[in-house]
Design a protein around this nucleic acid. Structure first.
Lengths: 308, 308
DNA sequence: TATTGTTTTATATTCCGCTTAAATACAACG
DNA sequence: CGTTGTATTTAAGCGGAATATAAAACAATA
């Protein structure tokens, strides 16, 4: 789509990321073509300086998503739906992305041992040491891997998908219903309304394959924002980590349409309960929501059959 | 205290750490003088190779804690109670320890801004960059600090002691009672018995100032091991993180003797309930235990006065 | 005067040789 | 044989210069 004509000098990772997030931001705002992108606002939004923002904007210009207005910055060039999907960073940062996924897959197919030296990773995946270190640090933040006391790294048992999935659900069954009952819980009504609307919209329209990604975003946003509303920093972080972990462990988001609709209905019910101040009810619904999404499709189908 | 006679060539951080942990390990085992320290066993225990273990043993020998038996390794030289308290690592690793504490104190006294560049830390604390980076990464694992998208690091709100303490207790009130009710919960009876005995012993004997440190260890061990018994990796990690966080936020462990005895009694009650399979009861007791230790001393004193 | 365009300054990363120290293999001892 | 003592191999940490890029200051424009 609208291929780049201008020559680009390999944007930094930050700039490529920002470019993506700017598009996402515009989408959330529902910005129309002609919308003026004010640099300072974007800086505040993403808490960076103007330099990387300008880099990101140039990038988006090269992609044809936004158009320059001399001495008046950039405006959105066309409906955001037509905006490019993926924006590539410079080779070495793409390399990091790839390595992350490669390691994940190697682990999930059990072709990587539980303990390994960073040098060994350099050799096996033919990567550069700094890249390996970045990826390991990233994984360490998700608690997927830990430094051993001496040399080497140890993959944690959480990365073994089978048992781990259950434990993750068990953990969420504790945290997520509880966070709705915190005395410090304050529903962000503004967000709740938007989230509800977006989910209802998806519920009503015909299902398209491309909607899978959007549902994924809506879903994670739902859980993450509720955690934020809990007013408890630890709970928020715990939920965020669970989300990051799941994203890591399955990047094959294949949704059963029926399940998506069910999930949306449950989300909306929870939001409505919270809106009415029935947090106890919302908490119970959340428990059910997580429990039901924990059962694999076969089980769910069987249950449906039973009740019918 | 049996000063070092032999010349020591600055042990590595790992070796100094291992030396400490070996002493701790011996204490837990209740090893008597003459106890033979088998290198391989220690390697397995701490998952390192023999090299750093041997370094640690040499260190302990220099401190007079263990005695060499030519071609038969080392044996414990004297009752562990007389073992040295602190074993110093090489200067730069001590530097890291100090920097960690310095930063914590600077944060807690609000002399450090919320956001800061790593270079700025290098200047302010007159430290070397690698040391600063190590400390920042360590703090990042505790979620005390996060990288900003561009340059610099941002201290998280969890490091503001006031509100943070409450949030931490709120979080623990959710997790710790719940973990005792997990279907996967399996009490490690061996550990439970030892823990119970150690706590009863402390309860019975006269209070000495030095006991504060021991109580701290028993206390964290109590919570951490129960988390381990939960069989849920996420809960275990969550509890461990809470412990690490608390250790960071207050390293002035000043215990009120009465509170310590109360805590021990509650611990023992919980262990007994679990031993009898009354996990529901244990869970309720745990909730009470955390709630009561969350109230500041004044409140507790007032409550006691009321009930009398 | 708010915003963009341009320049300067400061920060962070990377590369590479060198040093330290952890892992491993092997020999020797009881 | 299981264990310690010794030697060898391999991995990781560190310093300093060069580079990339983010932050900040300044100038120009509508």
């Amino acid at each position: 789509m609208a291929a780049a004509a201008k020559k680009i000098e390999t944007p930094s990772r930050l700039q490529a990321e920002l470019a993506q997030r700017i598009l996402q931001h515009l989408k959330q705002q529902g910005a129309a073509p002609g919308h003026h992108l004010v640099e300072q606002d974007l800086c505040a939004q993403f808490s960076v300086s103007r330099t990387p923002i300008r880099g990101a904007l140039k990038l988006l210009e090269a992609e044809g998503a936004i158009a320059p207005r001399p001495h008046r910055g950039f405006v959105l060039a066309r409906p955001i739906k037509e905006a490019p999907q993926a924006i590539l960073a410079k080779p070495q940062d793409e390399e990091a992305r790839r390595l992350f996924i490669d390691i994940a897959q190697a682990r999930n197919t059990e072709t990587l041992p539980d303990e390994i030296a960073q040098q060994e990773l350099v050799r096996r995946f033919d990567a550069k040491l700094p890249v390996v270190l970045r990826v390991l640090r990233q994984m360490a933040e998700l608690r997927l891997v830990e430094r051993k006391p001496g040399n080497g790294w140890a993959f944690s048992s959480a990365a073994q998908t089978g048992r781990a999935q259950n434990e993750s659900y068990a953990f969420r069954r504790i945290i997520e219903p509880a966070m709705l009952l915190q005395p410090s819980f304050r529903l962000d009504r503004d967000w709740a309304q938007k989230s509800r609307a977006a989910q209802m919209a998806m519920r009503r329209r015909r299902w398209r394959p491309a909607d899978a990604a959007e549902f994924h975003d809506l879903n994670t946003d739902f859980h993450e924002q509720l955690a934020r509303c809990s007013g408890n920093w630890h709970m928020q972080k715990a939920v965020q980590q669970q989300i990051a972990l799941r994203r890591f462990l399955n990047y094959n988001w294949e949704y059963d349409m029926a399940l998506v609709y069910e999930a949306i209905d449950e989300h909306v019910e929870i939001l409505d309960a919270l809106d009415g101040g029935w947090n106890e009810k919302a908490s119970a619904l959340m428990l059910h929501h997580i429990t039901s999404s924990a059962s694999p499709p076969e089980v769910r189908a069987a249950k449906r059959a039973e009740t019918v």
